[in-house]
Simulated assay, not measured.
Amino acid sequence: MSSLANKISVPIFSGQNYDYWAIKMKTYFQSQKLWELVEEGVTLPEDSSTSSSAEKGKLENKKAKDSDALYYIQTAVADHIFPRISVATSAKEAWSILQKEYQGSANVRIIKLQTLRRDFENMKMKDYETIDEYYTKVRELVNQLKAYGEDIPEKRVVEKLLISVTEKYDPIVTTIEETKDITTLTVTELVGSLEAYEKRRSRREENSLENAFQFKLNMRSQNSNRKEKF
């Protein structure tokens, strides 16, 4: 067992956000070089009597690692979920039980993936949203798609943001499309440009409101002075 495993606490699954939990656990298992065991399990020979001592040693080592992985899964679920995997004797079995119950069968996952794809295609920025708020929603949907096996290229996310922001961003979108290579533009660069434009626009609107307010005050003051003269 790696010393790193003693320093990192596994994320606890309480029944919500299974997809995110599964991604974190997969990363954890990969860091401990246990993911292959969780995904594929331990293959036992049909007849171990002919196995060499070296082969038997490797098998015992795999079994021990599989027990480590199973323990991590048992530790990573809340008490009310543990009974579902309490009968599992291998990490693969426990992982499969949770995956089937909380992520669904292959058909259910396909339907969910289709729904997520449709949501991604139809997603548009609301007038009241900021770039940060909207991008957070897009990123969360992209992460869900990835959890269901759909890898969304960064270029596609860039294109999605450019065509789905509200009309008030048209000037900066046009500038970006005319001056940047969209095929190499990163999401970070795009969001940074949109946020910078958003801040400049917000400052101009604030200045306009302040000027209008000051103008009204001046007009009231002038009218008041005129009335006093008469």
Rank of each mutant, 00 (worst) to 15 (best):
S48A: 14
K56W: 05
T43D: 11
S51T: 09
S52P: 00
E40K: 12
A76S: 15
T50G: 09
G57N: 04
E39P: 05
E39G: 06
I73V: 07
T43L: 11
I73D: 05
L44A: 00
A69S: 01
T43Q: 13
T50S: 09
V38W: 02
I73P: 00
G41T: 10
L37H: 09
S53A: 10
E60D: 13
A64Q: 13
K63S: 06
Y71M: 14
L59W: 00
E36M: 13
A76H: 12
L44S: 00
L70F: 12
E46Q: 11
L59H: 06
S52C: 03
Y72W: 10
T75L: 15
Y72V: 09
V42P: 00
N61P: 00
V77L: 08
E36H: 14
V77N: 07
K63I: 11
L37N: 07
V38H: 08
K58E: 10
V38I: 08
S67Y: 12
G57C: 07
T50D: 03
L70S: 10
S48E: 13
S53R: 07
S49V: 04
E46W: 01
Y72M: 11
L59C: 08
V77G: 03
V42G: 08
A64D: 15
S53C: 00
G57M: 09
G57H: 00
Y72Q: 07
L59R: 08
V42F: 09
N61T: 12
E39C: 07
K58S: 08
Y71K: 11
K62C: 11
A64I: 05
E40Y: 05
T75Y: 13
K56E: 04
K58M: 10
K63V: 14
K58W: 03
K56Q: 10
G57P: 02
S53N: 07
E36T: 13
L70K: 02
E46M: 05
E39T: 06
G41D: 05
V77D: 06
L70V: 09
S52I: 06
D47T: 00
V42E: 11
E46K: 12
